[in-house]
Amino acid sequence: MTWKEVFTSSVGKKLVMSFTGIFLILFLIVHVGLNACIWANDNGTMFNAGAHFMGNNVVPRILEIGLFAGLILHIIQGLMLELSNRSKRGTVGYAVSYSKGSKWYSRSMGLLGTIILLFLCLHLYNFWLPNRANQGFLLGEEINLYAKMQEVFSNLLVVIIYVLGCLSLGYHLAHGFQSAFRTIGVHNKRYNAIFTTLGYGFAVIVPLVFALMPLSFYFGWIN
């Protein structure tokens, strides 16, 4: 079997979703860890130093290209799978649908992912785009990202959208985390128990910490 065949069958497409999903989960750990420096209460000194390391260093910037590639692959493949799967029911759907066999967020990964995508567009527009534009999209002078956060998160509407985006991310991860490991073939009961528990923990903690960032700025919890 060719590599193309491996990754274009229905199982192969899920493998792509799974590998890119795990990669994005790893990215979230870095992102949430670095952004948590805002709570150092030093007027953004530690946070800006961290942001400078990531933004003005060739290694993270090369990884950033990989991040966008993984993200775009995850989004396009996910949307295509959602559309393809929806068409498999045939021309007539069920009159009565049963919902107790599966969790609503497991059935709504396409919808949750789309909400996250819309949030992501706003998020990149708020921070990534002005910062990289200032750098000339190469290694260059960055804007004060801490000050930018203070400015962006003074708007209540933006804060609400960010919190909703984080909520969608939480439910997306509640299914996606453990599903990704099932897709790469983890069927050992003990490991499945670990990944399921870890998945729910990750899905609650990481989006919660992210959501606390705009809230902290808006309600003045940070000095």
Binding site: S10, K14, K100, G101, S102, K103, M109, Q178, S179
Partner: peptide
């Protein structure tokens, strides 16, 4: 895949039924 079944998303509805 050739028969036109969809891809699995691990929702668990199959196992439940």
């Amino acid at each position: 895949d050739k028969e036109g079944f969809g891809a699995c998303t691990n929702t668990g509805a199959c196992e439940a039924t």
